[in-house]
Design a protein around this nucleic acid. Structure first.
Lengths: 124, 124
DNA sequence: CGTCGTGCTACAGTAAATGTAGCAAGGAGA
DNA sequence: TCTCCTTGCTACATTTACTGTAGCACGACG
């Protein structure tokens, strides 16, 4: 895969297919990416505060993700420091905000596989 | 980090915090996870068809993700073969379906950072 | 029987994340 | 000015995750 010298990110997978949804899914599917957007959802955070909010994730990967998110136009660095969502980023955040409600229902849903019983008898 | 012998998945990050949203964000943030859900959005696919749809991703990681998604109760293996979404998975898929429309607007949004001009003058 | 298509796994190589430490620059206070 | 603290950000060795290729066991055809 051809690499690009842009700060801290490779070309988003699927960006060549011309289907922006693929590019978006790949970008959002990188580690800590969704979490970062989630933590910034209602107020800007300094890089250190964000690190704390993200369960002390390593600054290396956070910095990488922040660069990518800034390139994508979802996150920006405020004048006085601190990362915040751009209008576009805020919009994105709103799109997957229903996940919160879904997550609550998910936990309380009857899901025997989560109790670690291994696989039920398979089909063959 | 302690490992666990459950089929192809470690404990979801953030699952100890008791906040299901964290667990969900971590699960969905793993590579190819969102893509898999996306590709299964309207019809079940065989493992091979899914691999083709996912741009020939390696079967190792696909199999791992499929196990995790099955544990989570989002995906199931049909009786005659082929992976499909469970009702819960279909619901999850619906929650982030608006991403499609967002992705379209995202591409056509004025985003100078995507053209690789490097960083604009920073704050200090 | 042989051939095909399932789901699934092994394994070596490579890419990415972790964890720890530390940098340069700005601001506040003495 | 000289500390002291916080900001964003980076280096680097270790560990973990993913890739790419090959191949398995099973079942359904013919």
């Amino acid at each position: 895969m051809a690499k690009q010298a842009v700060s801290g990110s490779r070309p988003v997978r699927g960006s060549r297919t011309g289907r922006p949804i693929m590019a978006l899914l790949d970008l959002l599917g990188r580690r800590w990416c969704l979490r970062i957007l989630w933590e910034l959802r209602d107020e800007p955070l300094t890089s250190r505060a964000l690190r704390t909010a993200c369960d002390e994730a390593s600054p290396t990967v956070l910095q990488t993700r922040l660069s990518e998110l800034r390139e994508a136009g979802f996150v920006e660095l405020g004048e006085g420091g601190g990362y915040g969502l751009t209008p576009l980023g805020r919009e994105l955040c709103k799109t997957f905000m229903p996940l919160h409600r879904f997550a609550e229902r998910w936990r309380s849903s009857p899901s025997p596989r989560l109790r670690g019983e291994g696989e039920p008898p398979r089909r063959r």
